[in-house]
Design a protein around this nucleic acid. Sequence first.
DNA 1: TCGCTACGCTTAATCGTTTAATCAAGCGCT
DNA 2: AGCGCTTGATTAAACGATTAAGCGTAGCGA
Lengths: 357, 357
Amino acid sequence: MSTSRTRPNLSQLATLLDVSAATVSNALSGKGRVSEELAERIRAKAAELGYMPSQAGRALRTGRTQVLGLVLPDIANPLFPQIAQAIEHAASNAGYGVLIADSRGDVAMQTKAIQQLQDRGVDGIVIVPRRGTRVADIGSPVAVIDSPSTPGNTVSADHWQGGQLVARHLLDLGHRDLLLIGNNPASNVQNDRIGGIKSCLPSSVRARVLWIEPHEEAHGKGCHLGLKERFEEGVTAFAAVSDLHALRALTELQGAGVRVPDEASVTGFDDLIWSSAITPALTTVRMDMETIAEQAISALTIVIEAQTAPDQEKSVLRLSKVAKADRTSVPMDLVVRQTTGPASSQAVKAPPAGDME
Amino acid sequence: MSTSRTRPNLSQLATLLDVSAATVSNALSGKGRVSEELAERIRAKAAELGYMPSQAGRALRTGRTQVLGLVLPDIANPLFPQIAQAIEHAASNAGYGVLIADSRGDVAMQTKAIQQLQDRGVDGIVIVPRRGTRVADIGSPVAVIDSPSTPGNTVSADHWQGGQLVARHLLDLGHRDLLLIGNNPASNVQNDRIGGIKSCLPSSVRARVLWIEPHEEAHGKGCHLGLKERFEEGVTAFAAVSDLHALRALTELQGAGVRVPDEASVTGFDDLIWSSAITPALTTVRMDMETIAEQAISALTIVIEAQTAPDQEKSVLRLSKVAKADRTSVPMDLVVRQTTGPASSQAVKAPPAGDME
DNA sequence: TCGCTACGCTTAATCGTTTAATCAAGCGCT
DNA sequence: AGCGCTTGATTAAACGATTAAGCGTAGCGA
């Protein structure tokens, strides 16, 4: 084979073309002054040899690695595939690689993970913080994806509006007695979603909130949530703030003999992978991760570029390193599937034990 | 604050200590000859200033970036969190960072993704290939995590043995008529799991296989799998090769009024995040991702180090770049939860009318 | 004709680290 | 004293890219 064992570098390309390495660099980057004709020859040769600049050399000289860090503190977060995929895609389009760092649920390790990323020389960091964690001012440019109500948030889904979608959908179906299911009240995301739902409900509808984590602490992990009882009390719709909890609710109801959606409706959030695979398929609210990721990355790149700009030193004083996107919140979409249906049927069916309000 | 704006480098450290940069390098790496006393002084100063070597500089000189690539071709694979977390952890322990590359389910993009990783200068690549994809010989060291029956596989769970666990568990419970549920017969992993199950079954038990993807092509995506009918034909246990399909089966059965585990048992594979959260909690088979990741990474690092070793050129000819682990397959563990129960009850219970037992 | 600018390219310095080559000194031996 | 060997440090040359500065030539206005 004639394919060279080792990848060509600038100077090899240069000697082959009988020009200086600098010219090749200029031609390929379009920076300096190179005649169009020569530039074309250089580009051709580069393409022919499959030349790819060494990131190491470039990084050393420019101080930029073209790599971003992604830190996902929630252990085994089922959203991870969606997030990682979207971020990777957006970053890749912007010419960045993505280095992952997992802090395994440990809040203290989050700092360590960030530190390690910085030691690796990342140009910036995308953080999806653990619930409630406030991201301190790190040395590097940072984009935070959490919730609009988190201070220092860069961009995120409009969880509040997502909640409103759920509320209106259930209202339209005639539901008047809801159980909202969350995991932990310390999460900004979950609070926004629940707040959004509540904000749409007229005072005539009853809406109670069940927080799973406190409940489990009292009754043991994996315990029943007592949804059957709520159903018998008249609750016709169960709105969870995550598909994971929606799934739990759905199976618990089904197992207790409550028919979904005929007797009770269930909704979730995030459109996780299984939501469309189960029977009945889950009605949920999806976030536009593509857009969120794009916003985060573009906001981040702006900060990164401002970083190296020799500009006014004002920037050093004024410009925070945490990125600010132009669209700080991205609307969510309601995906109506089969776990929601008209409440009227329940009203008929309610009698067994409960009463109507 | 007295913390310097910019991180210290070798020469700064050197001039501060009135020695040469080379000596500092030697002292910190323990390579050259440096008096213990001086070495200690150097280490102390380095620690004091929080000196961290520039990866860029080092990479340029040594040709190694201390970064591995992780390519996950299956789009939004629900295993992703587990895999990424385990790999990241193992890699981190070995001093490597992990760069992710997602080929979004597109087989052609897998090659492109690998290419990009190589352009970024990764030292090696961990691939969890898309079903059936044979990983060609890339230029870089590679570790493949798929299934023992995949040629070129480095390490993976012992899917066959996992299947045997399921079979024996169901057999012990008295099940004699099974439906095995897979997605696509082209997957080595799924075939191994099914093969393992079958290998344990005496000829007296009936075991049919339902492949979802072909079935969906015939009946439309998200269609019913007709499990109720199978149940009525006498099937008492549904063994899926993935929790995702087990979940689908479980909800379909529950929705059709079949009680699990009283009337039918369901098992899955992989212990995905939701398996323990649903009701009833899913009996499944878990792979020891920690061990798999460790094996993959350590095998990979060996190849990487062999790479730079100036050894006999024999290695260039003989030594393949695909890593070989000492434990090529890692046993799986059965996690018995609530979706499996004795088959006898069904035999009794088969008539529609309910009783308790 | 002189001086100025624009063009197109080359020279050379630089980023931070590693490492082979070198060198000075000390010490034990013959 | 002279030779060889070890010890502990220094020098200098890479690695591959970017980029400011320099330099010869040509065009052009004064």
